[in-house]
């Protein structure tokens, strides 16, 4: 699964997600460009997190959830029956809204996923590399054996990013990664995202429109219909969405008239 230049990494085609009989999102068609930051924005309950989780089959963990349509990863539908969600998640990592480091040492937090996935190289180097990648190394290099829970919120979130990149995924999904953090920590996470964009495809859900405008290359705007079902309203380059939205709802949202 090499990264074909110019081709899309992930594509959602007519994707519908149901929670039981409730359709949470409908007919989503979305193309994710490689090594770029795609932001998913929209009002509360518009299904942007559901869409994000559909990209690495995290919705499978919700017993009543069902996904229709296709999500192709390098041209292959990850919802095909013979695709193992474990492999999907190994390639498409995830960072969550609230920092959730394991109650283990900082070292083990980073090393656990790699060990699990059969990493054969030099673990100390991988841990250092990942922590450096997450701009955390200098702060924790002397206390790798301390619990990950002993770090501050912002540090914990960067640890989670280090943990995610330690398994060398291709895509990292981020579900409002800075929403539980203070402004300074938020800023550091944003800078970090800009840095790791060099090596990873990033899809980020955010509530914060400035953040989306500042930090992303593409923006997908979601909204809800009359049945409270989420849908993709407009997708394009961030610049275009924020300066010249084609859709009226998008314009209303980004100008703060609803949402």
């Amino acid at each position: 699964m090499s990264n074909n230049n110019g081709n899309y990494v992930l594509q959602a085609e007519d994707m519908n997600v149901y929670y039981g009989s409730f359709r949470a999102v409908k007919n989503v068609n979305l193309n994710i460009a490689p090594r770029a930051i795609t932001a998913l924005i929209g009002p509360s309950g518009c299904g942007k997190s559901t869409v994000l989780r559909a990209f690495n089959r995290m919705n499978d963990l919700v017993p009543v959830a069902r996904t229709e349509g296709a999500v192709t990863f390098h041209g292959r539908n990850i919802y095909e029956p013979n695709v193992d969600p474990v492999e999907v998640r190994r390639r498409i990592g995830m960072v969550f809204q609230k920092p959730n480091p394991f109650p283990k040492s900082i070292y083990d937090n980073v090393a656990w996923g790699a060990k699990l996935n059969g990493f054969k190289g030099h673990m100390d180097d991988l841990v250092e590399e990942s922590l450096r990648g997450a701009a955390l190394w200098d702060e924790v290099k002397d206390k790798l054996s301390q619990s990950g829970l002993s770090l501050s919120g912002g540090q914990q979130q960067r640890l989670c990013i280090a943990r995610a990149i330690a398994v060398k995924p291709e895509v990292i999904l981020m579900d409002e990664p800075a929403s539980a953090l203070d402004p300074i920590a938020t800023l550091r996470i944003e800078e970090l995202i800009q840095e790791i964009k060099q090596n990873y495809t990033i899809i980020i859900v955010t509530h914060n429109m400035q953040q989306a405008a500042r930090a992303s290359d593409f923006t997908a705007f979601f909204s809800v219909d009359d049945h409270r079902t989420g849908m993709l309203v407009e997708f394009g380059e961030t610049n275009q969405i924020f300066t010249n939205p084609h859709n009226e709802t998008t314009e209303q949202y980004i100008t703060g008239r609803f949402g």
């Binding site: 690495n56 963990l61 969550f96 609230k98 656990w112 699990l116």
Partner: peptide, 11 residues
């Protein structure tokens, strides 16, 4: 959240 983190790493 711990389970999610674990699954998210391909566990």
């Amino acid at each position: 959240s711990l389970r999610q983190a674990s699954y998210g790493l391909g566990a």
